[in-house]
Design a protein around this nucleic acid. Sequence first.
DNA 1: AAGCACAGGGAAAGGGCTTTCCTTGTAGCC
DNA 2: GGCTACAAGGAAAGCCCTTTCCCTGTGCTT
Lengths: 338, 338
Amino acid sequence: MATLADVARRAGVSAATVSRIVNGSPKIVSDELRERVLRAVQELQYVPNAHAQLLARSHRTTVGVIVHDVSDPYFAEITRGLQRVAAEQGRLVIICNSYRDPDRELEYVELLRAQQVEAIILAGSGYHDQAFTKALNAKLSAYLATGGRVSVVGRHKVAGDAVMPANEEGGYLIGSAVFEAGHRHVGVVAAPKRLTTTTDRLAGLRRAAREHRRTLPARHIEYASFDRDGGAAATEALLDADPRLTAIVALNDSMAIGALSVLRARGLTVPDDVSVVGFDDMPIARDVTPALTTVRLPLVEIGARAIGLALDAQQPNPRVEEVAATLVHRESLAAPRE
Amino acid sequence: MATLADVARRAGVSAATVSRIVNGSPKIVSDELRERVLRAVQELQYVPNAHAQLLARSHRTTVGVIVHDVSDPYFAEITRGLQRVAAEQGRLVIICNSYRDPDRELEYVELLRAQQVEAIILAGSGYHDQAFTKALNAKLSAYLATGGRVSVVGRHKVAGDAVMPANEEGGYLIGSAVFEAGHRHVGVVAAPKRLTTTTDRLAGLRRAAREHRRTLPARHIEYASFDRDGGAAATEALLDADPRLTAIVALNDSMAIGALSVLRARGLTVPDDVSVVGFDDMPIARDVTPALTTVRLPLVEIGARAIGLALDAQQPNPRVEEVAATLVHRESLAAPRE
DNA sequence: AAGCACAGGGAAAGGGCTTTCCTTGTAGCC
DNA sequence: GGCTACAAGGAAAGCCCTTTCCCTGTGCTT
C-alpha cells in the first residue's frame, strides 16, 4: 500500500503538506503544490491508513453495537434507526452479533474497547444471571471511566443510559385484548426464561390475567428458543398438553408465525378455532394469513434514540427513556367459539 | 485509557515484556513477572489498542463485506454463512450497507481499504453502468495490486474471485414450471432494470418462454423497487393493464409477498384465480399463505464460499464458482382455471 | 531602510504497539 | 578457571499519520 510518505516523495513535498491537503486542513497551501499532491494521490491510488489516523488524532468517530443477531428483523429495525443517526452524525458503526451468548457479549465489549469506539450500544434482552451482569458492569464501568459512552436498549441494571421498550406494558396490552375477547384457555409461547424480555412480557400478561380474574398456570406456558421453530415446537407442546386452548400468545412475531404453521398443519383455523397473537409488529406480521394481532414497538425510533443518548454526551448520570408500546389489531385474534 | 506503558510501569517491567505476556508470545517469561503483569492488567482494566496493534503488526485480520442491506433476508443469509467462516478462521467482519447506491459502494471500497482489511467481499447484484463498473474495477485493482483479496457474489466483469448464483438458470426453472402448468397470460414483477440480477433472471424466463413458444410482451413486465412494496405496486399496475393474467412471476420472494397482498386485497385467490411464484426461497416463503413456489439459492453456502475464496489466497487468477438453483414446489402455483 | 506581520512550507514529536537485536547473568562443559 | 550456550529481559526502531512549532521569504508600514 502507498503511504503518505510515498505521496510526499512523489510530489516532492513534505509529509505535512500532503496530510494538510488530503484532510482539507484550514492551513493555506499554494495551488501548485496542491495540484502536484493530488496528482500523486491519484497515481498511487493512495488511501490514508485509518488506523494510523486514529492513533494520531485524538477524537474517536466509530460506535459499536452489540445485538443478538442483525438478521433477526427485530434487531434489523433497531439497527436501521441507529445507522441513520450514525450516518447523519458522520459516525461509522461496527455491528457485533452475540447470538445470545453472554460470553460472546463480554468478549465483544472488550473488542469494541480495543477498537477505541466512542460509544457502545447494547441492544436486546438482558439475562437473569448475577455473575454475568456483574462481569458486564465491571467491563462497562471501566470503559465509562475512560470517557466511553454506553447506552442500552431494554436492559435493567446496566451501567449507562437506557432506552426501555415497554415490555411489561405491551404484555399487559396484548393480555388484556385476549382476555377481553373472552378467552379462558390461553397458552403462552414463551422465549427462554433467562431472558429479561421474557419475564417482563410475561409479567404484563400476568397483570392482565389478574385484572380479568384469570390465571396463567405453569402448564400453559411453554419456553422455547426465540424464533420461528421455537414457536412451532412450543405450540405443539402446548396443544398436546391441553387441546382446549382457544388462544396462543407468542412472545414475539417469529414465534407466532411458527404457531400459525403448526395450527395450519393440524387443521385448526385461525382465529376461528384458535386465536394467535404476536409481539413486536415485524414487517411480515401484516402479510401472513391471517394477519397478526400484535404489539407494536417503534423499533427504528428505539435505535435512533439509543445512539442519540450515547452521542449526546451530557451529564454522566444515567438517563432512562421509556418507549411506549401500542396494540395493533389485525385478524388473528377473535372471540373464542362458544 | 490505560496503555501498555502504564501496565509496564505498574508492574515494574519493560513494555516488551508486557506485550509478550499479553499476546502469548513464544518467548519465555518467568512466572513471577508474568503474574505481576497480569495483576497490573487486571487492576488497570487494560485492553490493547487495536489500531496501534494493527499498525505495528504486519498481518491483517479483518475482512469487509459490502451488501445492499443486511436487514434484507437475502443478504442476512449470505452474511450468516460468511460470518460463520470468518469466526472459524479468527477473522473480524465489517459489514457495509450500500442501499443499492453505486456511489456509496465506491466509497465503502475506499473505506475498507483504509481499514486495511485483508479482503473485500461484494455481495448483491451489479449494475448496468459502464462508468460505475470502470470506477469500481479501478479501485478494486488498486487494492488487489497491494495484496488485497476480492471476491464477489453474482457480479459480472468485476476483478477478483466470484461466486455466481445461477440466476439465469433459476429464471428458466421457474419460467418452465409456470408455462408447463399451462399459463398463457403471465405477468412479471421485476426489479429495477439497471440491476444485472434482474436481467439475468429475466433472460432465463425468456428462454423458458421461447421453449414453450410463448413470449413475454413488454406490457407484461413491470419494473419496481426490489422489495415488498415494490412488488405490490408492480402487481397493481400489471393487473390494471391486463386483467386476464393468470400468473405473476416475481423476481424475488419479497416482491411475491407484496403481490400476494394485492391479490388478496382485490379478492383474487391464489392459486385458483392467479398463481404467484417467487425467487430466493427466503425462510418466510414457506410460512405465507399459500406457501410460495420459488427458486432456492443456497444463500448461506454462497456466503461461506465467497469468503472461502477470499481467504484461500491461491493463485491470483480469478476463480469462478457456479452455484446451482433448485425449484421448490409449494402451493402458490397451480394450473390456470379453464 | 529597518521593522513587522503573515503566508507558505518543513521538521519533528508524538500516538500505542510489536519485534528485532542487545545485554546480562547463570548453568554447563572441558 | 575459562569458555560457550542459552535463558530472561530491556532498548529502541519502526508502523503511518497528525499537528505543533519553527523557519524562510515576501510585502507593508513608518
